[in-house]
Amino acid sequence: MKFRLKNLLLATLFTFICFSVSAHPIKMTTGKLEIDSETMSCKLTINFFADDFESALQSEFPQPSFNYDNPQPEMIETIKNYVSGEFLLSVDDVEVKLEMLKVKMIEENVCQVTFSGDLKTVRLFETVTIKNTLLFDAFNKQSNILHLIFNGDKITILQFYPAVPVRKERLQ
């Protein structure tokens, strides 16, 4: 009896371990949000793995392959709409409209998208609320890292993942 229990235990353990196998996928974006109360503006830079970014956007909005050297209007529009829908920013509960500035490749398989925002209606610059769900629909293991900078000083580094898609931080 003891022998059978032992073998059952070992067999269960072996099966469980073998079936729980998975490698170490890296699904991530990094970014930087710079808020400047002097110029009443903000700049958002987001870095994507180009293959993940393109496959996610192409599956949602089918179109010719992205050409980062010469972005076509359809590509720019797709990226602008996608990022604007998945990255929402409010400063002191005032929603910020983000305007896309450029998209480019910065290194092998890494593309960078830059946005700017007008903060002229913000008065106190006390809090910032960010919803960052970029690529969450495309990959289960996706997480997004964002460096938050206020008037040139790094405030914090935020991480967003499906369980925590929204973060609210004090600026001062």
């Binding site: 991530m28 990094t30 970014g31 930087k32 870095n47 793995f49 910065i106 290194e107 890494v110």
Partner: peptide, 8 residues
Amino acid sequence: FRSMMMGI
């Protein structure tokens, strides 16, 4: 680690 630092 390099993925976490990409573009930073």
